[in-house]
């Protein structure tokens, strides 16, 4: 929902605190579930993730979630799906060049990022999403990876 997702950008600091507190719990719970029942619950987990993040952030389930690095603003709502925005076409009032009634996703993202503890994470280069992950759960994928989702170095190498 448009108003709720803009609320998230405005209150990015609070969302960041909740995210930092909850993500280790969510990810370790998912690891336990995976150990107990394997992949049998993946469909309902993915459904739940889509519902929760859909309401809060207008999540598009790209499966490559970067919310905590983009000011708690989902970049997939940008009509050009830019992952390192904004583009140069932002209107003088800060609205989107394509959809004049919508605030530029990246104007919100940079505003949101300034309020966060890890305010410089937005300066990390986000390579274009892996399209194979479209529609899949970023939670499950992250729980399987080494669970290392800490702030990376600003000078990090780009890994497509």
């Amino acid at each position: 929902m448009y108003s709720l997702r803009r609320f998230a950008s405005r209150h990015s600091r609070a969302y960041e605190t909740v995210y930092n507190a909850s993500s280790p719990i969510i990810l370790s719970t998912l690891r336990v579930i995976n150990k107990l029942v394997g992949e049998r619950l993946n469909t309902p987990i993915t459904w739940l993730e889509a519902k929760v993040k859909g309401v809060l952030f207008d999540c598009k389930m790209c499966g490559n979630c970067v919310l905590s690095s983009t000011g708690m603003t989902c970049p997939m709502n940008c009509p050009k799906t830019i992952r390192n925005g904004p583009c140069g076409g932002v209107r003088e009032n800060g609205n989107c060049e394509v959809n004049a009634d919508m605030k530029c996703v990246w104007v919100d993202a940079w505003d949101g990022a300034q309020k966060m503890q890890h305010s410089r994470e937005i300066e990390l280069i986000q390579f274009a999403p892996n399209q194979q992950h479209q529609g899949s759960s970023a939670w499950i994928r992250l729980s399987k990876e080494s669970a290392n989702i800490k702030l990376q170095d600003i000078e990090l190498e780009v890994k497509p």
């Binding site: 050009k80 830019i82 992952r83 925005g85 583009c87 060049e97 780009v158 497509p160």
Partner: peptide, 26 residues
């Protein structure tokens, strides 16, 4: 990154935007 297709003479075209300018530079 490029202008959106809606700006041009083929607004019915499918926009790609697989990469963005920064991913393209990388």
């Amino acid at each position: 990154t490029g202008d959106d297709v809606s700006a041009g003479d083929h607004p019915e075209a499918k926009p790609v935007f697989d990469l963005d300018s920064i991913s393209l530079l990388s």
